[in-house]
Design a protein around this nucleic acid. Structure first.
Length: 577
RNA sequence: CGGGGCGUAGCGCAGCUUGGUAGCGCGCCUGCUUUGGGAGCAGGAUGUCGCAGGUUCAAAUCCUGCCGCCCCGACCA
């Protein structure tokens, strides 16, 4: 493509509303423009990158035996009522009515549609397993869209759904997708890791997230330095500590102390001159409308997801002042487990504690020397807290490492959550009606592109890995008014087109510096500079964007040389897989 | 939804406190010079100052309401 004819508006200024580097660069490089909050247009350059990624995904999905479909984005309320998510999905589901006053939503995901499709046309075990995927625009009415294309409301996603006869077969489908995802992100040239994850509102029991390593990432993950354990911070387990033997004769007498206006752990700690780890924090949660007390050591933080999963609750939030007053008989800040009427669950961190401090369920009073068993009974100890850097690996006791990343893919074992609710059944060999076992597998398209930029940029702009690069080569004649230069450039451009090389010909009447800056900014991996001095020797210069490496080649050999480098770099990323 | 900030030319911003009819840099257009890392000089175009009311002889500036955007938090893939 001739640069002079391209719609490629590059910018020197950093847009004031772009926070992360990928967002800034995507705007500056003329890849995207914002329409409204969380909704973006892709310009030609950006869309080419999207299509490169989509192509890689298609190839790997097809290779894994999945078949591409295209499902509607507008979906009827009935389907969502059937799965129960019309009520549970919440405000992220954008709902609207048509002229007949029928209710619809914009698809934030497609479990309902795919399940309804498959249940109508798959009747027997002979038709299973099946894996269907699509690349579709999703809409989720995010509370706060941010980081450009990384977290937006309208976004492209590849989603696949597998249907199997039993758990074993479903496990194989899951493995296939897991492998396909590894291949896809390897081919993109990304540094990533699959980690164990919570499955969130999609549901299901088992899932892995594919995380691209980046400091700017929204997610934190924990890795074991010794074994292969890796998990999202919100999922990462804390091993149950070995219980020490506690002797009742160590128990000191329970003591009620006056603690006027002393509520937080810091205040209690300062007022009673005890360490936060000698206090037990009692948090009252509202779990689907029921109050529940969670006990944890004063210096640690509760992981709400773990609490939610432990309780099997659909909605979980910290209780309101009103609920706290009702549940404990005291205002916020004085809750404790002694003589409390609600369900009490307790974190492992409290397992060995003796003579600790808690609230007294009475305004302006705390208890000292509280002890489990003597002063209150509990239902069980559980893993309910957020992992800390000092925690060891829950599998092998090795040291852990905390890293940040961007979630670009997520694979779930759904089980029968949707197939049961929506009656996706088949007849097995014995003519018995059985429920299909499902899995679902997503990749955020725009987000993956943004993540690729977060991992591949320098002070001059984007540095595309070859497989995602919108073009592989840019030809830069240093001065278009020099006839020899332009003639050589035109010839070279035509030979490259003839060889099927994806090339930009920068035929603009701009100074060399401007062209160099633009080429760097948009991140084209290879640049061929045609200048007077080298041309007199019959040579042109090949500059590698990534390394800055510079080499001269004759006009005769340059095309083959470039072809070779491209082939090598596209293949090398495949070879890893 | 809570807290904070912003909205003035395509982009980045000043002007607002103390009302007097809009400016700077980049970009854009024309000409000359320049031509290997975002050139120089000269000339030029571009604004319902987010929207709607109000106060005033006079509003970008003061007041009220609304809308939009960004950041932090809560929430979330």
């Amino acid at each position: 493509m001739r640069y002079s004819e391209m719609f490629l508006p590059t910018g020197r200024e950093v847009p004031s509303d772009a926070e992360v580097i990928s967002h800034q660069l995507m705007i500056r490089a003329g890849m995207i423009r914002k329409l409204i909050s969380g909704i973006y247009s892709y310009l030609p350059l950006g869309y080419r990158v999207i299509r490169k990624l989509e192509q890689i995904i298609r190839e790997e999905m097809n290779k894994a035996g999945a078949q591409e479909v295209h499902l509607p984005m507008v979906q009827p309320a009935e389907l969502w009522q059937e799965s129960g998510r019309w009520v549970h999905y919440g405000k992220e589901l954008l709902r609207f009515r048509d002229r007949h006053d029928h209710e619809y939503c914009l698809g934030p995901t497609h479990e309902e549609v795919i399940t309804s499709l498959v249940r109508n046309d798959v009747k027997t075990y002979r038709q299973l397993p099946r894996n269907l995927y699509q690349i579709q625009t999703k809409f989720r009415d995010e509370v706060r869209p941010r980081f450009g294309v990384m977290r937006c409301r309208e976004f492209g996603m590849k989603d696949a759904y597998s249907f199997d006869v039993d758990e074993e077969s479903a496990g194989k489908s899951y493995e296939k997708m897991f492998t396909a995802y590894n291949n896809i992100f390897n081919r993109c040239g990304l540094k990533f890791r699959p980690v164990e994850a919570d499955s969130g509102s999609i549901g299901g029991k088992y899932s892995h997230e594919f995380m691209v390593m980046a400091e700017s990432g929204e997610d934190a993950m924990v890795f074991c330095e010794k074994c292969s354990y890796a998990a999202n911070l919100e999922k990462a387990e804390v091993a149950c500590p070995e219980k020490k033997i506690i002797y009742e004769y160590d128990f000191l007498p329970l003591e009620e102390v006056h603690t006027p206006d002393v509520r937080t752990i810091e205040e209690v700690s300062a007022f009673l001159k005890v360490m936060p780890q000698d206090i037990v924090k009692t948090l009252i949660f509202n779990a689907d409308g029921q109050p529940c007390a969670v006990l944890i050591r004063g210096d640690q933080e509760v992981n709400e997801i773990k609490v939610k999963n432990y309780l099997g609750a659909t909605e979980l939030e910290l209780a309101s002042d009103e609920m706290i007053l009702k549940a404990t008989g005291a205002p916020r800040g004085f809750a404790g487990p002694v003589n409390i009427e609600v369900r009490v669950i307790i974190d492992y961190s409290v397992i060995d504690m003796v003579n600790f401090v808690t609230g007294a369920n009475k305004e302006n009073y705390h208890f000292k020397n509280v002890n489990i068993g003597r002063d209150f009974n509990i239902e069980a100890f559980a893993d309910l807290r957020i992992v800390e850097p000092t925690d060891n690996c829950p599998r092998c006791e090795g040291n852990t490492q905390f890293v940040r990343g961007i979630e670009v893919g997520h694979v779930f074992k759904l089980g029968t959550k949707y197939s049961k609710a929506m009656k996706a059944e088949y007849l097995d060999k014995d003519g018995q009606e059985k429920i299909m076992i499902m899995g679902c597998y997503g990749i955020g398209i725009g987000r993956t592109v943004a993540a690729a930029i977060e991992q591949n940029y320098d002070e001059n702009g984007i540095v595309w890995p070859m497989p995602l690069a919108p073009y592989h080569v840019i030809i830069t004649p240093v001065n278009i008014n020099e006839k020899d230069i332009m003639k050589a450039a035109e010839n070279l451009y035509n030979s490259m087109l003839a060889e099927g090389i994806e090339v930009i010909f920068d035929d603009r009447d701009e100074r060399a510096g401007v062209k160099f800056k633009d080429a760097d900014l948009i991140g084209i991996p290879l640049r061929i500079i045609i200048g007077q001095k080298n041309l007199l020797q019959g040579n042109v210069e090949l500059k590698i964007r990534k390394t800055g490496e510079n080499k001269l080649y004759s006009l005769q050999e340059i095309v083959q040389q470039v072809k070779q480098v491209i082939a090598q770099e596209v293949n090398s990323t495949i070879a890893v897989s």
